[in-house]
C-alpha cells in the first residue's frame, strides 16, 4: 500500500467551516434576541448546511466510482433521517402525550 503525502486540504477546510457553523448556531441560540421559532429555523438550516458540507469535505461523496451505490446510500440515509426527525416530532406532538 502506498501513502499519498498530499496535505488533506479539504479536511482542514471542512473542519474549520464546521467549527464556524457550530459557533454561529451557538451564538444565534444564546445571544441573539429573536423569537424561539426563528432561532429553531436558523439553527436547523445551519445543521442541514453542515451535514451537506461534511458529506463533500469528509465523506468523499464525489470520489466514489460507483454512482448507484452512492444513490442507494443517500436514499437510505435520507429515509433514516426523516424517520428519526419527522417521526419523533409526529409521535411527541400528537395525542395526549403533548398536552
Amino acid at each position: 500500500m502506498e501513502h499519498k503525502s498530499k496535505y488533506p486540504v479539504s479536511h482542514v477546510v471542512g473542519f474549520l467551516f464546521s467549527l464556524v457553523l457550530t459557533f454561529v448556531a451557538v451564538f444565534v441560540a444564546l445571544k441573539m434576541n429573536v423569537s424561539y421559532t426563528i432561532v429553531m429555523w436558523i439553527i436547523g438550516s445551519l445543521a442541514v448546511l453542515q451535514a451537506g458540507l461534511q458529506l463533500f469535505m469528509f465523506m468523499h461523496v464525489t470520489e466514489g466510482e460507483d454512482g448507484k451505490t452512492n444513490v442507494i446510500n443517500m436514499a437510505y440515509a435520507a429515509f433514516v433521517a426523516i424517520v428519526i426527525v419527522a417521526g419523533s416530532i409526529w409521535v411527541l406532538t400528537s395525542g395526549h402525550a403533548a398536552h
Binding site: V91, S94, G95, H96, A97
Partner: peptide, 9 residues
Amino acid sequence: TMDAGPAVN
C-alpha cells in the same frame, strides 16, 4: 400507553 393518539398508535 403514552397515548400519542389514535393515528400514531
